[in-house]
């Protein structure tokens, strides 16, 4: 157990915690933030994705020690932003949501991409999604949604 200082969804937080605990378990079991999902537990599927300092990370592979001094944003936190609204609407309009289990992770991947590259090409989108598995859609409608979000949200990123 040790004390770490970090930011979660915009709030400074001080946790007395086992440093080896997975961020995913902390979020789901201690903070009841159930948006990040566990699909594989080994960094393949991306369902557990969160933003750490604006960049996508798999929370199943982040020990609590590694969030010390960093800012973590989950889908719940990101959902309060205007950028989220733009991305969410584009996902709805393009039919990019099916079973929905991968979807919060896909939204996080989209934000992480657009934060660095507001007008991505299709191949940049594919690279950005390469750690987020979806078994329902075949990805095309997700790619279209991200393209649409980038277009609608010009100036937001």
């Amino acid at each position: 157990m040790a004390k770490i200082e970090w930011m979660l969804n915009g709030t400074p937080i001080s946790s007395d915690i086992d440093l080896s605990m997975r961020l995913l378990d902390y979020l789901r079991d201690h903070q009841h933030l159930k948006g990040p999902k566990e699909g594989c537990g080994e960094g393949e599927c991306g369902a557990c994705a969160v933003l750490i300092d604006h960049q996508i990370a798999n929370s199943c592979l982040v020990p609590m020690a590694n969030v010390a001094g960093h800012e973590v944003v989950t889908i719940e936190g990101f959902a309060k932003t205007k950028r989220y609204q733009i991305i969410a609407q584009a996902f709805i309009d393009c039919g990019a949501v099916q079973c929905g289990f991968c979807t919060p992770g896909m939204i996080i991947a989209t934000e992480s991409l657009l934060h660095h590259q507001p007008q991505p090409t299709i191949s940049e989108i594919k690279v950005a999604l390469s750690g987020n598995l979806c078994r329902c859609t075949g990805y095309n409608m997700i790619i279209e949604a991200i393209t649409l979000a980038a277009k609608r949200g010009r100036g937001e990123w």
């Binding site: 933030l33 948006g35 990040p36 999902k37 889908i75 709805i92 039919g95 979807t103």
Partner: peptide
């Protein structure tokens, strides 16, 4: 003619409860 999925919003926001999300 397409309409928005009725459960899309709750799935996107992470609010939809899958079995492991229920305690």
């Amino acid at each position: 003619t397409p309409i928005p999925r009725v459960d899309a919003k709750e799935k996107i926001s992470g609010a939809a409860a899958y079995i492991n999300d229920i305690d």
